[in-house]
């Protein structure tokens, strides 16, 4: 092959992968927010509802729903969703949900993640089990890939300080 031909081939090989990134898999993330309220129903029981987040005041609970969508035409694997617990809020214990995913938390601003039973904080020189109000970040590790055009969602609730 001549020098020019080999350069062209090399350029083609270099260009194609760039094009293929955009064409093959593009995962987009959308965050929805709701006000989470408890509505009384009969027999003294109550149910949880996620409604429009109007008039959020201290003490109110806000629900976040992260919707992940594979808008590309190839599967996207090893999907990991990360969300810092927003400032001026506290994570509501046990509220994180995500079908088909493993949920872990961080107490060190996202440097390390672990299951709640393996999270500890230092206080007055003592090592204590971390509680929900210590969590700084939440992570969902999806168990399977998202096929082209497929959507998934995870959610959690915080309380406004």
């Amino acid at each position: 092959m001549s020098f020019n031909e080999s350069v062209k081939k090399a350029l083609l090989l270099m260009v194609l992968p760039a094009i293929s990134f955009n064409a093959f898999a593009q995962v987009e993330l959308k965050t929805e927010m709701y006000k989470v309220i408890e509505v009384p129903i009969e027999n003294g029981a109550s149910k949880i509802e996620w409604i429009q987040p109007n008039s959020i005041t201290p003490g109110d609970r806000v629900g976040y729903r992260l919707i992940v969508e594979n808008k590309g035409d190839k599967p996207a694997g090893n999907i990991v969703l990360n969300n810092p617990v927003p400032e001026n809020t506290l994570y509501v214990d046990g509220s994180a949900r995500g079908a088909n995913s493993s949920i872990v938390f961080s107490v060190d601003q996202g440097k390390t993640f672990a299951k709640p039973e393996n999270l500890f904080i230092q206080k007055d020189g003592k090592k204590l089990q971390a509680t929900a109000k210590d969590y700084s970040n939440i992570r969902w590790i999806l168990n399977s890939a998202l096929k082209a055009g497929e959507k998934g969602s995870v959610q959690y609730v915080v309380q406004v300080k």
């Binding site: 993330l29 965050t31 806000v62 992260l66 992940v68 999907i79 969703l81 969300n83 400032e87 998202l146």
Partner: peptide, 10 residues
């Protein structure tokens, strides 16, 4: 109160 989430994938 601002919330920005991120996703990483392969």
């Amino acid at each position: 109160i601002s919330n920005t989430a991120s996703v990483s994938y392969e």
